[in-house]
């Protein structure tokens, strides 16, 4: 599968990564190689295997609806690059 520069740009945008023009070239080649390698999986015979979303046989793991202590707000904000009024401060975003 050929990966165009537009595809790399699109994926970079979804991941909120800024790429330089020369990086677009590098990554389109690399991504193409990676996906080509992944295509090997298509050769596996899986017709007898039901679609699997989880590999563990665990099922129905629940927690009782009981309150447990939350973190201290100081601890919550400790690693925040910016904070204000006991809240995380982030660059202004409006949907």
């Amino acid at each position: 599968m050929a990966i165009s520069k537009d595809t790399v740009k699109y994926v970079a945008h979804l991941a909120r990564i800024r790429l330089k023009p020369e990086e677009l070239d590098v990554f389109s080649v690399q991504l193409e190689e990676i996906l080509k390698y992944m295509e090997k999986l298509n050769e596996a015979e899986v017709s007898h295997i039901p679609p699997t979303s989880h590999i563990l046989s665990l099922k129905n793991v629940f927690r009782a609806d009981q309150v447990r202590p939350s973190l201290d707000v100081d601890a919550v904000l400790e690693n925040a690059p910016k904070k204000k009024d006991r809240q995380f401060s982030v660059p202004k975003v409006i949907a």
Binding site: R63, D65, Q66, V67, R68, P69, S70, L71, V73, V76, L77, D85, R86, Q87, F88
Partner: peptide, 27 residues
């Protein structure tokens, strides 16, 4: 209107001090 959040034991309450009902899971 459960007592706690969907995936952690933090209380569900309206009007509390900002970020006081958080833990590693919901953060």
């Amino acid at each position: 209107n459960t007592r706690t959040k969907a995936f952690c034991g933090c209380a569900v309450e309206f009007g509390k001090e900002p970020n006081s009902l958080t833990c590693p899971v919901c953060l």
